[in-house]
Write a protein that binds this DNA or RNA. Structure first.
Lengths: 303, 303
DNA sequence: ACCATGAACTTTATCCATAAAAAACAACTT
DNA sequence: AAGTTGTTTTTTATGGATAAAGTTCATGGT
């Protein structure tokens, strides 16, 4: 049966809004809520129905008003708010990055399905989607070959990344002066400086800043294939560093400084300087990944 | 039910081998056949069983020998030798390239499933696989957005292609002299010259030559992401030109000449000359695609 | 005429079932 | 002992069913 995670997530969001006072007195119409939450009206109605049932809101002659206070126990547990597909993704990444899965292992849909507690179909869909990341290969009628999160993988990934990033950085720097992207870049620069000041407590926030920065650079000259490739990078980094937090603060601090140099180089419109800053940053990102790969390989995974 | 296309295709192949005299007298063992055909022994046995049943081979005390002559009617029809997944691919490509499907159309799994006569599962798997080509986008819980085989698509595709090809070509030309790839290149050069001589009758054969050539260039410095991207290009060209044969002979003739210049440039190891030849070829390939896109857009599709 | 709610209908996400194909095991032969 | 064939078990490819979510149609109020 299809999960009702969309409903539960929406319910939790409305509950939070009620609790935070973002919704007070008379509630907005179903359509307005629908837009706000990004779900269908059907789902909104289901949420409202449950809220009435639990007396979190009251309904009198077609008018809905807030009801009793929201309690912690009103929320659905987080695990129930993500779809099966997302669960599969998470479990697979954990299996891949944490387990002692060696390159060359063959992957068995049925076995993973049993292990993850889902139907084989879901596994297969995930593997198909995931195969564009270059870590898997399908052998028809037979199964999947896991190629491993290896040094080669990282090197090949970064070779492309450098090509794309240099191209995008140069195009960015050649934008007209009145392009709105320059302002966005300036704003990002400020955000970097802020973060650097508070690095002790906020170093976790770097990851999203990093993402915004690299995506901004691509905005000047969109290319869907480059965007797609950046999705791969984000994905890889997201999961990889989620399980490998070694030295995180230091790493991020260094990266911020590199970004700042890179931003200055962009603003200078000096092509050679830009190339140097860009390469320097990517080389260091690559080193970091490679080093952590080695740590990772040797890590005791049965902890 | 799963199709038995693997069996039928294997059966047809063995039948052809019997007819062509590649198999005469005493037949090889099941294991040997298995290796030759690239299927499991289970399938080989099923084929052999049917061959015996039809008296195309005879089996006496464990020894199999050839039987009566193979007739045209012994073969399974071609349509029955390709899997559902492949059929879906073909039908979808036809729907996309031939139909009047406009960019921005939304795609409905259920409708396609009905139209193609398969279960929704197969459609979904295909769409997931296909989405890496940048022509589709999934909107969760809602459906798929068809972005169209547009001019933008072609331009973005070629931008990447140029980057990758220049990179690979330069690396190829810098290989050591004793690399075996130089010989392969020389062989390809001969094949090009041959084809050029017989262009009147054999111009269809260019496509596979083109493929071999560009893949060879990537071989000198493998990168899985570049290989994957080249899969996209092959796929797009395969289907696109399958339905758009306008001017094929002339196009291919011109391309052969460009390839020859390109090959000479590789052999010269002259970096600037190489860059010129490579760019010239890709620019002309792009022009061809773009021109055919326009023809295509204006074509009456209800013929 | 527009916007709200209610109800019916359509499509997606997900599980389950099963024939075909592959893989593993067993018994035999030279 | 290595290679054959026969048999059983496992896995993949494909169809089908259904609750949840999305979309469209209908009705009623301003």
């Amino acid at each position: 049966m299809r999960t009702d995670t969309v409903y539960k997530k929406a319910f939790n969001r409305v509950a939070s809004m009620l609790r935070d006072g973002q919704l007070t007195g008379e509630l907005p119409s179903e359509n307005e809520l629908r837009r706000k939450m990004g779900v269908s009206r059907t789902t909104v109605r289901k949420v409202l129905g449950e809220l009435v049932h639990r007396e979190l809101i009251a309904e009198r002659s077609g008018v809905r008003t807030t009801g009793r206070a929201v309690e912690d126990s009103d929320y659905y547990p987080d695990a129930e708010t993500t779809s099966r597909a997302k669960h599969v993704e998470q479990q697979f990444m954990e299996w891949m990055l944490r387990g002692d899965t060696r390159p060359g292992t063959s992957i068995n849909e049925l076995e993973l399905a049993r292990q993850f507690g889902v139907a084989t179909n879901g596994i297969r869909e995930f593997l198909i989607r995931f195969s564009r990341f270059g870590l898997l290969e399908k052998r028809p009628n037979t199964g999947w070959l896991f190629k491993g999160f290896t040094e080669d993988f990282a090197l090949e990934l970064f070779e492309i990344r450098v090509m794309f990033e240099l191209r995008s950085a140069h195009l960015f720097s050649r934008q007209p002066d009145m392009s709105p992207l320059w302002e966005k870049l300036a704003a990002l620069k400020v955000a970097h400086t802020e973060l650097l000041k508070q690095i002790e407590s906020r170093f976790h926030d770097f990851s999203s800043l990093d993402n915004r920065f690299h995506r901004l650079i691509n905005e000047a000259s969109p290319n869907r294939f480059i965007d797609d490739f950046y999705d791969i990078i984000s994905f890889v980094f997201h999961y990889h560093y989620q399980w490998n937090k070694h030295d995180e603060k230091q790493r991020n601090q260094a990266a911020i400084l590199e970004h700042l140099a890179y931003i200055d180089a962009l603003e200078s419109r000096d092509s050679e300087r830009l190339e140097r800053a860009c390469r320097a940053h990517l080389a260091s990102a690559r080193e970091t990944l490679m080093r952590s790969l080695i740590v990772f390989d040797g890590m005791d995974t049965n902890a």
